[in-house]
Write a protein that binds this DNA or RNA. Structure first.
Lengths: 113, 113
DNA sequence: GTCGCCTATCGTATATTTGCGATGAGTCGG
DNA sequence: CCGACTCATCGCAAATATACGATAGGCGAC
């Protein structure tokens, strides 16, 4: 047994209601960035995984995907660069979780299409 | 003045209500494909343009974007391969329009996240 | 038919993405 | 301090994406 996290990760949930405009050049760039981050099946699966265990997992992701650890780490970096997920260091491991704001933003941008 | 199209393009609008499941491996692939298609600012702009003039435009897209004609054509091909848009030949020009089903599908998939 | 217009495709060059193994950087337990 | 463990990064190879000019093909006007 381990129960390593769930204590100091992904708890803030500060409801920040600001979402920018849904069209214009900046919105286009934003939608493109978020879309590109989701533009690979492995990254979609990671996002889904993080949502299912809405507590954040870490290297369990590697076990769930048929990819090498370094490849998964790279996909995680891609998602993090797009601000879709966050990674908090928790002892020796890293605890990833969804950034709900980005997900809301994506829904708003896609919904505005 | 021209008013070339608006006559034989994008009129069916057959409301087909079937949308597949929103999770599972196939849904992951589908979301990844649609997202990748939107993963470039130029393609986002094209989609927005086609939605604004919801009648379909053709080479006007080239005039609206700071890209060469061949590059725009390539982006259009990308969107068409993802089934996000459709291109109907209308005399010497090609009339592009949004595929509403794909857009609904994208919204459903993103909404299910 | 020939000409001009519009679009797709080809060929090319460059940049980015994707994947892996190997290596480094960090933490915890002894 | 020393291993064991977790994760990020580096280096590399192959594949894909992006952009352009040049070219080919279809259609309408003449």
């Amino acid at each position: 047994m381990s129960r390593p996290s769930q204590t100091s990760c992904c708890q803030p949930a500060k409801e920040q209601a600001d979402l920018g405009p849904v069209e214009g050049d900046e919105a286009d760039e934003e939608l493109a960035t978020l879309s590109k981050a989701l533009g690979h099946p492995a990254r979609v699966k990671i996002v889904r995984l993080l949502l299912r265990r809405n507590a954040c997992v870490c290297g369990d992701i590697v076990d769930e995907l048929p990819l090498a650890q370094s490849t998964v780490s790279q996909h995680l970096k891609g998602l993090k660069d797009a601000n879709l997920i966050r990674g908090d260091v928790d002892g020796p491991r890293v605890c990833y979780c969804i950034e709900p704001r980005a997900l809301r933003r994506l829904r708003a941008l896609v919904g505005a299409l």
